[in-house]
Write a protein that binds this DNA or RNA. Structure first.
Lengths: 137, 137
DNA sequence: TAATTAGCCTACTATATTAATAGGGTATGC
DNA sequence: GCATACCCTATTAATATAGTAGGCTAATTA
């Protein structure tokens, strides 16, 4: 299941991508427009800022704005920051690999084999889809 | 994330698919072989039996056995029984659809658009992969 | 420079789900 | 008729998610 964190994060990114001239938008504005808990959104935007997707401006007239061109923001990167691994199981993860405790040989494991295929196809979509594709800009 | 329930269920299915002549296998045998908690596995096999993937035989010499040919068992069906929806978000689910509370128009929703693509590609894999493909039998 | 604005940061809590455990019940077969 | 092995319900522990609370700090504007 996709977490609300990721869902809200993607919605906020598309909202900001649609702004012209990178005008800062206040958290409260996005919160109201997208029906997202203000404080929760605040922490999500903070994460996106720390990972160099967003910039922020303090004080009056401040807010968040997008740093890169939407077409240069791969959804794979967004997913990994907000959601974590793209694969459904750690033993097939490229960026968050972990061995299964119960599984002696992952090359012989049916689950591993299946989930590796799913990861490949999902990853291809996330890599080939940019923020620009999602917000029509 | 894939639940252990699904992971264990798939492992048990492949184990049973490899048995010749549909000889019943005891829960304890699978539990030891695959390093799965016996009681947890018990409930998983029960679910698979109730959904007509497995048959069971009580008493001495009893156990579980597979009912259909492994090549006729789509992983999509297994996933839906054990894991639930294949999509990452209810609003794009074909079998477990739910509207998002916060989203006024899902056709305009970036998350919806992205997740629909991911569901399509995952579903295709789960539909085209059978138990026979996973256990080499 | 003082007041206001709006992001920054830490900590806490409520809820739900998952994973596992416990314990007894019931049908089967030798 | 007794041992075997599946059947079923209930409970609990651990974990992650989602949301809340409250104060701090930097920037802006008058």
């Amino acid at each position: 299941m996709l977490s609300k964190k990721t869902k809200y994060g993607i919605k906020a990114l598309t909202y900001l991508a649609r702004q012209e001239n990178r005008t800062p938008v206040q958290i409260a504005t996005i919160s109201k427009s997208e029906n997202i808990s203000l404080k929760f959104l605040e922490s999500i935007l903070l994460t996106l800022r720390k990972n160099d997707f967003l910039g922020s401006k303090k004080g009056k007239g401040g807010g968040y704005y997008i740093l890169k061109e939407p077409k240069d923001i791969q959804m794979a990167a967004v997913m990994r920051i907000l959601e974590g691994p793209i694969s459904m199981i750690p033993c097939v993860s490229l960026n968050f690999y972990e061995k299964c405790e119960d599984c002696p040989d992952e090359n012989a494991c049916a689950v591993h084999k299946l989930m590796a295929q799913v990861r490949d196809s999902s990853l291809e979509i996330f890599k080939n889809t940019t923020l620009a594709d999602l917000c029509n800009c």
